[in-house]
């Protein structure tokens, strides 16, 4: 494992912990998109299905369990927790799941590395992860006041994706037969979606003002 991959995974882990910490301690999910969180739970459920029959490393298995556990916990908090669920702004979080789910499913059935159940599900999870942040970005744009933790959560997620691209470039030049077009294209599109957010995030950081996205 190279340093970019490790840094990417740690950033990903940090993003999830920041979100869980916010929800658990402040008992509020204001500004958090349940739609995005549900899509991530589905992304991890479909991608890490191989946890039972494909052992890669102890590290991978532990990380998969953490991402599965944390994503389903976050969904549970927003939907079921007595106090947290009151802060969920349903009227602002209006993005339609199916809008993203169906195209991803169709695309995974048509464009995949191998037409097997496991492989189609894995590919579906890649496509879905690429666009799962959209409901959250739309919600951020609608919410005038973005609190620090929500901003940091999205920033860390974007950083994780950018680090994964560096990891692919590194692996491409250091490993033989390391070619994963589908992963790379889906991952690059995913990272580009953060471009706008990154721009405003750094602006607010540089000028030391509250993060606000233009409508």
């Amino acid at each position: 494992m190279n340093i970019f991959r490790l840094a990417g995974d740690m950033t990903h882990l940090a993003s999830v912990l920041v979100l869980l910490l916010k929800i658990h301690t402040i008992k509020s999910c204001a500004g958090v998109s349940l739609k995005t969180q549900e899509l991530y739970a589905l992304v991890f459920a479909t991608r890490y299905l191989d946890i039972f029959f494909n052992f890669v490393s102890f590290y991978n298995t532990i990380m998969k369990l953490i991402f599965l556990g944390s994503s389903f916990s976050i969904v549970w908090y927003i939907r079921r927790h007595r106090i947290v669920r009151r802060s969920y702004d349903k009227d602002q979080d209006t993005f339609r799941h199916l809008f993203l789910l169906l195209p991803c499913l169709l695309l995974a059935l048509v464009i995949n590395e191998r037409f097997t159940f496991k492989e189609v599900l894995w590919t579906f999870s890649l496509y879905l992860e690429a666009v799962a942040i959209l409901p959250q970005l739309v919600l951020l744009q609608r919410t005038r006041n973005i609190d620090n933790l929500t901003g940091q959560y999205v920033f860390l997620l974007g950083a994780y994706r950018a680090l994964y691209i560096l990891n692919w470039i590194y692996r491409y030049f250091t490993e033989e037969h390391y070619v994963h077009w589908i992963t790379w294209i889906a991952g690059t599109i995913q990272t580009l979606l953060y471009g706008d957010f990154f721009y405003y995030y750094f602006q607010s950081w540089k000028n030391n003002v509250r993060l606000e996205l233009p409508a």
Binding site: R5, D9, D50, S57, N60, K64, E113, E119, T183
Partner: peptide, 10 residues
């Protein structure tokens, strides 16, 4: 060997 369907990333 071919790494086409080896998924060792998260």
């Amino acid at each position: 060997g071919s790494a086409v369907t080896e998924h060792d990333e998260l």
